[in-house]
Amino acid sequence: MVDCIRGTSPVSEPKDFRASFDSDSQRTPVRVAFVTRRTTPHVTKAGDDRVMTNPDALLRVAVAVMALLIVLVVVSLLFDAPLEGLANPLQTPNPAKAPWYFLGLQELLHYFPPVVAGVVIPSLVVLALVVIPYFNVNVEAEGFWNRNGERKSILVWVAVAALSAFLVWFSVYAVLVPTLVSGGALIVTAAAPPQDKGFGGWLRSKPLPFWIMTWFLVVAITLTVIGTCFRGAGWSWVWPWGEL
C-alpha cells in the first residue's frame, strides 16, 4: 500500500495515524493516505509523475497502433504476399527453406547434426530465456568488470578461446565471427577507464547477461540473414545480388 501514497516523504518524527480525503472527489480519484508515525500527509511535490491512462496513454497507444496499421496497409497495397505453385510433393524446390525466423536454425543444421542444431540448441535457448530472471547474476546488474577484473579477464579469454576452437572444429564461421566480435568487444572494454562517461564507460557498466544476450542476438541475426539471403541451391553460398 505504501506504493499508493504519492508525494509522501519520510519524516523523522513518528505521528499518530490519520486518514485524509481530498475534498474534490469528482476531480481526482479518492486519495487515501495511510499516515503512520513515520509519515506525514504533507505533500511536498505535485503528484505529476503519473498521468491519466485515459486519455493520455490511450491516445498515444492509438497513435502507435495507427502508425503500425499505416505501415502495414502501405506494404500490403504495394507488395503481394508470396504465392507459388500448388504444393507438389514430387517436385522439391531447391533450396527448400523454412520460414525466415527458422532459417537461423536451418543454417545451424548445415553445420551440426540435426539433434544438436534442431533440438538441443533451440531447447537450450528457450530454457536459457526462461531462467534469466531467476539467476542473481542477471538480477544484480553489476558491471562485468567492476570486481575481480584480473580473474574474469582470464576466464573470458579461456571461454572465448574454447568456444572459438569448438566453432573452428566444426567450421561454423558464421557463428565464429560474431563470437569473436562480441568477445573481443568484451575484452576491449575491460581496458576502458571506469569513470569514462562515453560509450566505453557505458559498455563497461554492463553486466555479464548483457554480453551473453548481445552475443546471442548478433549470432541469431547473422545466422538468419545468412540463411535468408545467402543460401541458394543445395544450401550453397550465393550472393543475393547474383554473381559479380
Binding site: L83, A87, P93, K97, F102, G118, V119
Partner: peptide
Amino acid sequence: GYLLPWDQLAFWAITVGSNIISAVP
C-alpha cells in the same frame, strides 16, 4: 499459418521444419 496457402513455399517450408522436429531423440 505458413502451411495454409498450400503452395510450394508452404509445403516445403513445413516439410523442412517438421523434419527438424523428427531429430528429437
